[in-house]
Amino acid sequence: MSTAADNSEITALLYRYARAVDSKDWELYRSVFTDDATIDYSSAGQAVGTRDEIVDWFAANFGVIPWSMHYITNIEVLKQDAETATVRAMFYNPMQLPGMAAQSSCGGYYHHELRRTPDGWRSSSLREEMVWFVGGRSHADA
């Protein structure tokens, strides 16, 4: 059963994830995940891999995005025991894409499998489920 302390720590973990991505702080991003974590951004047409592979991918590719601002809401602990938790949260992400003056945005769900570690809750698996995207480039612009 999820406790108020667990819920607070899990919420803080997801907020730290958003801050890490938006500030492009890849060491902070690493701190959200276990060493053996797997991360799947394929629903957005992006990378799938280990934590370190995704950090390398972000470092090489995310710097071209002038700004992004992830909002994480509706955090639900779907299942929890003493050592693991399954969490779903909604995201809304306005951003500016390179070469575009207008704002773009997307939204969907983050699906996390969390593990309690000596340093607190960490994500051992993240799967992004992109539901919508507006304001992106058309194929003619590419």
Rank of each mutant, 00 (worst) to 15 (best):
W57L: 06
D36K: 12
S124A: 04
F91V: 07
S43Q: 09
A60Y: 10
G49I: 08
S124M: 11
L13C: 04
Y15G: 00
E83N: 02
R19D: 04
A101F: 15
H70E: 03
S104M: 10
K24N: 03
D35N: 07
G136Q: 13
Y92V: 10
S123Y: 00
D81F: 07
Y110P: 02
T38R: 12
Y71I: 11
D25Y: 04
T3L: 09
Y71E: 05
G135S: 09
F62K: 11
D22M: 08
L126P: 09
A89N: 05
Q103T: 13
S123L: 00
A89T: 06
R19T: 07
Y71H: 13
F58P: 05
A142S: 11
R16H: 02
D6V: 04
Q103N: 04
S43W: 13
S23R: 15
D81C: 02
D6F: 08
P94F: 07
D35W: 02
R19I: 03
Y15M: 04
Y41V: 00
P98F: 13
T11R: 15
Y109H: 14
S68N: 03
E113M: 10
S42C: 06
D119S: 11
I10K: 00
Y17Q: 02
K79N: 08
A82N: 12
P66S: 14
A12K: 13
S123P: 02
H112N: 08
F133N: 07
S105F: 11
A89W: 02
W57C: 04
W67I: 06
R88T: 07
S68C: 06
P118V: 00
A142Q: 13
E129P: 04
A82F: 09
G99N: 08
E27N: 10
G136R: 15
D22N: 09
T11C: 06
E128A: 13
